[in-house]
């Protein structure tokens, strides 16, 4: 560390380190660092600007042309919905089943995906794996399921299985298994191995060692990640509905395609989705803080 402060080459290293040379060297280092971070920043800004220009040139409408229109569509929608505001409570009831379907897809996928993730994570963690030689295999499996976007699997499954909630459920479960598996295994890696060793010494099987030795240690963090994932999955399930079929996303797509005249439905769906996400967000956030930080520190 000290050497770095004295400049680039050993030949320039001052002898004795008198106060003046030391501070000079320090200032030079600061200048050099600033130069480097300046260059990196400039490069970064240039990259952003160039990228934005490129993205704009390949877009159908330009940024400045579109900017005044940002509120055109929302205001059109809202003004129509305002005229028909008496319909909205009824529409809430009408779309509640689809909302339930969306939330159910997310919940089931989180459960199935989370269970698979737990199994994969334990099998892929060094020191805990049932078959240590196979850990790379399970790791690659998680990487693969994580990197295939849900939409690809969902659309292919719709081709085979037809519409409905099942394609979305399978697609989200697969992705969840990979994404959570990685996080789970990072947590499990930091788990204390002493309980596992103790259980091994009394002749516990692998499942017993995991269930009694590892799971109690990692459960709070795992549950916290699981809840975060549930929130993400609700959003994903709505999007999959919009692109594919099933749930409230599909209703939204139908209402949007109809255009003017059904904007009260659009607003009702927006509101339902918004409220659901906010509620889930706040509830999971509350429990997550409690789980990770402990009871007494629960959010004020």
């Amino acid at each position: 560390m000290v050497d770095i402060a004295y400049g680039p080459g050993p030949d320039r290293k001052p002898e004795g380190g008198s106060t003046i040379t030391t501070s000079e060297a320090y200032l030079e280092m600061v200048r050099r660092r600033r130069l480097y971070s300046g260059i990196i920043l400039a490069l970064f800004i240039a990259l952003m600007v160039a990228g934005f220009q490129l993205a704009q040139s390949r877009n159908a409408g330009g940024f400045l042309n579109g900017l005044p229109q940002i509120f055109a569509f929302p205001s059109e929608v809202i003004s129509e919905a305002w005229e028909k505001r008496t319909n909205i409570p009824g529409l809430f009831l009408q779309f509640l089943p689809s909302l339930m379907e969306t939330v159910n897809i997310a919940a089931v996928s989180t459960l199935i995906g989370g269970f698979t993730a737990a199994l994969l994570a334990l099998l892929a963690t060094r020191g805990l794996a049932r078959w240590p030689r196979l850990t790379p295999l399970f790791r690659r499996m998680m990487d693969l399921t994580r990197s295939i976007p849900e939409i690809v699997i969902a659309l292919m499954l719709i081709f085979i299985l037809g519409g409905g909630p099942v394609p979305a459920m399978i697609a989200i479960s697969l992705h969840t298994a990979g994404a959570l598996g990685k996080l789970f295994s990072e947590v499990a890696e930091n788990a204390d191995v002493k309980p596992v060793e103790g259980l091994t010494s009394v002749g516990a099987s692998w499942l017993q060692r995991m269930w009694l030795g590892v799971i109690p240690q990692v459960a709070p963090n795992w549950l916290s990640y699981l809840m975060l994932r549930f929130e993400i999955n609700v959003r994903a399930s709505a999007i999959l509905g919009f692109v594919g079929s099933g749930g409230i996303g599909y209703d939204l797509k139908l209402a949007m395609q109809w255009g003017a005249g059904k904007y009260d439905q659009v607003v009702a769906i927006f509101l339902l989705l918004f409220l659901t996400i906010i509620v889930i967000d706040q509830v999971t956030d509350h429990f997550r803080t409690r789980l990770v930080k402990g009871d007494r520190k629960a959010r004020a």
């Binding site: 993205a55 877009n59 159908a60 409408g61 330009g62 940024f63 579109g66 229109q69 940002i70 055109a72």
Partner: peptide
Amino acid sequence: LARAFGPGPM
């Protein structure tokens, strides 16, 4: 946003 800016990467 797609309504305001049209399709595309931006």
